[in-house]
Simulated scan of single mutants.
Amino acid sequence: MFTGIVEEIAIVKNIVREQENIHLTVSCSFVHELKVDQSVLHNGICLTVVAIEDETFTVTAIKETIDVTTIGQWVIGQEINIERGMLANARLDGHIVQGHVDAVGRCVSIKDAAGSTYYGFEYDQKVKHTTISKGSITIDGTSLTVVNSGVNTFSVAIIPYTKEHTVFKHYTLGQFVNLEFDVIGKYVEKLLQIRTS
């Protein structure tokens, strides 16, 4: 389990395709603290460390992950948000994040405000999950609060610190992002479906 509080921005150092899998080699400041089999969140995608060498670690994404996330579009040199799993005795500063991407969204608006930046996103109408105003959403592994919620659209407001310390600083119109909807909301949706069917 994760919190959506990005630890740092890491860099993709190498990408190797093997059959239907992708092996990603990543560098970050805490490589020496990682262990093989440890889970790390990469732009919202939970991946297992399979190798550690020098100042880098490697993770593997399978076809299912590639099909439902943006990972297949990543390139060498790209910056990504990363976070290690939450410690059991730690504060939950963000919200409960599983690292299971529900959908790929697209950035449709970027507006500067007085001291913050508003980003608008849309996602496929086939996705059954919803957002609510003041609810939680995870975008590329970043825990955020929904400002405006519509049908398959929503927006968030980013303070300067978050923008500078996450990959939000690189977002442009049309940018594809990984979305994970609030897990509690997903359970509620499922229960309502069962009761009404």
Rank of each mutant, 00 (worst) to 15 (best):
I159N: 00
I71S: 07
K163D: 11
T69K: 11
T131Q: 02
P160L: 10
S116Y: 13
T69H: 09
R84C: 09
Y171G: 05
G120R: 05
S109D: 11
N152K: 08
Y118D: 15
T130N: 09
V183C: 01
N89M: 09
I80C: 04
V108E: 13
D102Y: 06
K111L: 15
G85I: 13
Y161Q: 15
D102T: 01
I159S: 00
G72W: 04
K134Y: 02
G120Q: 07
D102V: 02
V104Q: 11
V177T: 05
Q125C: 13
E180S: 07
L87H: 14
I132Y: 01
N81M: 00
D67M: 13
G150P: 01
T153K: 09
S149H: 01
G115T: 09
I76E: 12
G141N: 00
G85D: 07
K126H: 14
V108P: 10
D102E: 03
G99V: 01
F176W: 13
H170R: 12
Q78C: 09
C107E: 09
T162H: 06
Q98W: 05
Y171R: 13
T145V: 02
K111G: 12
E79I: 06
L144I: 00
D93I: 04
W74L: 10
T130L: 05
F168C: 06
D140V: 04
L144K: 00
S143I: 00
K111V: 15
L144N: 03
H100C: 11
S143N: 01
I80R: 07
T172R: 14
I132E: 02
Q175I: 07
T70A: 10
Y161A: 09
H170W: 07
A113C: 12
S116N: 12
V177S: 03
D112P: 12
F176A: 08
G115D: 07
G85M: 08
Y123L: 09
R91C: 13
Y118L: 15
V147E: 10
L173V: 10
L87V: 10
K134N: 07
V68R: 14
V147G: 12
E164N: 08
M86N: 06
H95N: 01
K134R: 10
T142E: 00
